[in-house]
Design a protein around this nucleic acid. Structure first.
Length: 370
DNA sequence: AAGATCGTCAACCGCGCGTAA
DNA sequence: ATTACGCGCGGTTGACGATCT
């Protein structure tokens, strides 16, 4: 029995979304919340398939996402995580809550891979080839590699941080019945955010403005009225600012998010609901106060509305042994620490961690990349 | 100025997984 | 235990703008 098409292909519109369609979609989600995508086209009258609606929402209309202008810090994280996880963009995106997997994937494919290749050719055969090889690792293998990584990581972390071994018990087995890594909620939620890191960047929130920036105006306050928001959260109206629907057909003009759009949220989700990376990446990449608040609020609304937590939980790299688990924060800190280590001191960081058997190759690490 | 080529990225496609019936 | 369905993920495509010749 063949798989039925996800939707009736006849009469389904494809191609760039129009502002009108965006409005219809956003309005619907405002009323009903995301999910049940199958019902979206019928209820909205959109001639789009359910997947298309979900994608549009997830990648562009969803509040809390930031577009364009990847910071150095984000680049580093992506490179780290790509080396660690391979092309598991959703997992990588879970560490950068403001970025979508699609965005990260595109950025990798168009910028980072190219940069790495360049460096690879500059470094010779032993250069970054290993990184690219990473992505070619068959799915079944990366978990084993990851285990190896974690062992090495354990040692590195113990050395570097002088942490008690008990807290760093490395997993001996993964749930590997599927390609998904199992996780434990407690690991995810309990991490305490580190103090705000030294700001390494700068760029303002580069939300894509577009003719549909207007959508945010048209729909101003839509989140406020959402039944879901009313019941579960005190905050939400910031989201409209992020309807940065930049279809190419409309515009690619970038602008900073207007503070009026993003202000007004007062409460936030539990701070410890944020993964450190979430916290870190936001705070690190946004410096202006208004942007900062927008970031937090956006994240808040994202979490509240769109199961980002769930997604993150699903994807985040949580490893468990029989008795103990690696506190997720340690891994996060690990990555985080590396990124703020002054130049020249990076040798103890993640980049030193081999990604598997080809240790030698991997020693030409990405730190040189920057 | 015009055509060719390159780079970017929004969107599509197919597949796998989880789950409810 | 099986099947059908919905969702999410990763790879790929194609449109469009920018740059080069």
């Amino acid at each position: 029995m063949g798989r039925p098409p996800c939707c009736d292909k006849t009469g389904v519109k494809k191609g760039p979304w129009t502002p009108e369609e965006d409005i219809a979609l956003v309005s619907y989600i405002q009323e009903h919340g995301p999910g049940n995508w199958r019902a979206v086209p019928t209820h909205t009258g959109l001639l789009r398939c359910s997947k298309s609606c979900r994608l549009r929402w997830t990648n562009y209309l969803r509040p809390g996402i930031r577009r364009g202008n990847f910071t150095d810090h984000e680049e580093k994280m992506i490179i780290h995580l790509q080396a660690l996880l391979g092309n598991r963009w959703a997992a990588i995106a879970s560490y950068l809550p403001q970025r979508t997997d699609n965005d990260i994937k595109n950025y990798w494919n168009t910028h980072l891979r190219k940069k790495l290749r360049k460096l690879e050719s500059g470094l010779g055969n032993d250069g970054f080839s290993s990184l690219d090889q990473q992505s070619a690792i068959p799915k079944g293998q990366w978990e084993r590699r990851l285990q190896t990584d974690m062992r090495t990581a354990k040692k590195a972390l113990s050395d570097a941080l002088s942490l008690d071994d008990k807290s760093l018990t490395i997993p001996t087995s993964f749930s590997s019945s599927s390609s998904q890594i199992s996780y434990s909620d407690s690991y995810f939620v309990k991490a305490n955010p580190p103090p705000p890191p030294a700001q390494t960047t700068t760029s303002s929130t580069a939300t894509y403005a577009s003719s549909t920036e207007n959508i945010s105006r048209l729909l101003q306050g839509w989140m406020k009225n959402s039944p879901k928001s009313a019941s579960t959260a005190t905050t939400t109206n910031s989201s409209s600012s992020n309807i940065g629907v930049g279809t190419k057909t409309t515009t690619k003009t970038e602008s900073t998010t207007s503070s009026s759009d993003v202000e007004g949220s007062t409460s936030k989700p539990e701070a410890n609901d944020q993964s450190i990376f979430g916290f870190d990446s936001s705070s690190n990449s946004i410096t202006t106060p208004q942007s900062m608040s927008s970031t937090v609020d956006d994240q808040a609304s994202t979490d509240l509305y769109f199961q980002d937590d769930e997604k993150r939980k699903d994807n985040q790299l949580i490893m468990k042994s029989e008795n103990e688990a690696v506190p997720f924060s340690v891994i996060e800190n690990w990555l985080f620490d590396e990124s703020i280590v002054p130049q020249g001191q990076e040798e103890g960081g993640l980049f030193q961690i081999s990604l598997g058997c080809d240790d030698e190759d991997d020693h030409n690490n990405t730190s040189e990349f920057f």
